[in-house]
Amino acid sequence: MSGTAVAQPMERSRRRWFDLRLLAAALAIASAVGYLMYTGLQSGAASYFVTVSELEQRAGAVEGKRIRVGGDVVAGSIEVGGPGEPIRFEITDGASRLGVVYEGVLPDIFAEGRHVIVEGTYRAGQPLTADTLLTQCPSRFESASGR
């Protein structure tokens, strides 16, 4: 090995299974991380991931909270509008529908029938104003033709 040699006397007398100082350091880091994670989850960094039907059933519980909804874009519901206008569309899970308004860049893979995930703050009776629109081609690596 390179570098300076280190004197290495055997110090077997002091061997212990757990070094208290290490344990303290580990505990300190663990509790700090635990605290940060807990507050992170409380402070709206987390959002409820629901389907459109679940959203209807639990509308009361998620009112005013951040939600993440997955569904297919309803055929004929897309109103792209001109440049600068929000995109309006509806998503469905087969049973229920949810209106969505999205003011952002038109995503690459966005079309009728595609599976999308939208995220925003839920207000009952209003279309969801999404700040995030994830498009999910059911099989991104597969071709789109012939489906």
Partner: peptide, 14 residues
């Protein structure tokens, strides 16, 4: 039995 997801704010904070 609730699916909770976390986004960038969570990771930034932790």
């Amino acid at each position: 039995s609730t699916k909770l997801t976390v986004g960038p704010p969570f990771y930034n904070q932790v």
